[in-house]
């Protein structure tokens, strides 16, 4: 025995790193078929994880929620939840991929295509990017205008076919289907059209601005869109 325990653990650790991707996939497969949800309690268990960059996030009800659209636009506006609900909606079902590794398959999002909001506001010539702010008071995100106009980028009002709960970023969050999930800012409160991309919160901390799933952040996940 003696030092063999230490060496054994080191060996087991190395083997675990090598076999980890396969073991993780096996664990996810089992979790996907588990009707009890108990597998969600396992380490690295499936499903969404809650990330917030501030101490506490205020609640916004349908009565208090507001989304402003401003910057380089002809018609700045502030929308209430019913205004957004009255606009054309689009439902998208794709996998959600977090840059930290977890993935949730086939998650429906539904909401107003961002392109529709931009067209309604009238983007001025010279605009090249869109900046997003959040009512947690801290988080920010950004997209190029071209990315923002994609038809799989939504101002989402529903997720998993239900109203978006507070812990999932409700009542309104951004949804950028082809990118890592940190681009899909929670608690969306502001859309500002700008003349250049201003890196968002995590991007100022080293994450890629163009966060295509499988082609950024040094990762090779299967694309989500």
């Amino acid at each position: 025995m003696g030092r063999r325990v230490v060496l054994g653990l080191l060996g087991l650790g190395a083997a675990g790193v090598a076999a980890g991707p396969y073991l993780q996939r096996a664990q996810d497969t089992v979790a996907g078929k588990d009707p009890t949800g108990l597998t969600g309690l396992l380490p690295g268990g499936g499903g969404f994880r809650y990330y917030s960059v501030v101490a506490s996030v205020p609640d916004r009800t349908p009565a208090t929620y507001a989304l402003t659209v401003d910057g380089l636009v002809d018609r700045p506006a502030t929308y209430r939840l019913p205004d957004l609900q009255a606009m054309p909606q689009r439902r998208i079902v794709r996998d959600v991929q977090c840059v930290t590794g977890w993935r949730v398959p086939n998650t429906p999002f539904e909401g107003v295509p961002l392109a529709h909001l931009l067209d309604t506001a009238g983007v001025r010539p010279g605009a090249r990017a869109v900046r997003f702010s959040c009512f947690d008071g801290e988080y920010t995100e950004s997209l190029t205008l071209e990315q923002a106009r994609r038809d799989d980028v939504l101002v989402a009002l529903r997720m998993q076919d239900a109203v978006i709960s507070h812990s999932h970023g409700g009542p309104v969050r951004l949804y950028v289907a082809p990118m890592y999930f940190y681009k899909s800012a929670k608690w969306l409160s502001g859309i500002t059209v700008t003349d250049a991309v201003q890196p968002g919160y995590w991007e100022q901390n080293g994450y890629d601005v163009d966060a295509w799933v499988g082609r950024s952040n040094g990762r090779d996940d299967a694309p989500t869109a």
Binding site: G13, G16, V17, A18, A19, G20, P21, L23, Q24, G44, T100, G101, G218, R219, D220, D221
Partner: peptide, 11 residues
């Protein structure tokens, strides 16, 4: 490489 990172996260 990313595969290592997945394995490292798992362990």
């Amino acid at each position: 490489p990313p595969a290592w990172r997945t394995g490292a996260t798992f362990v």
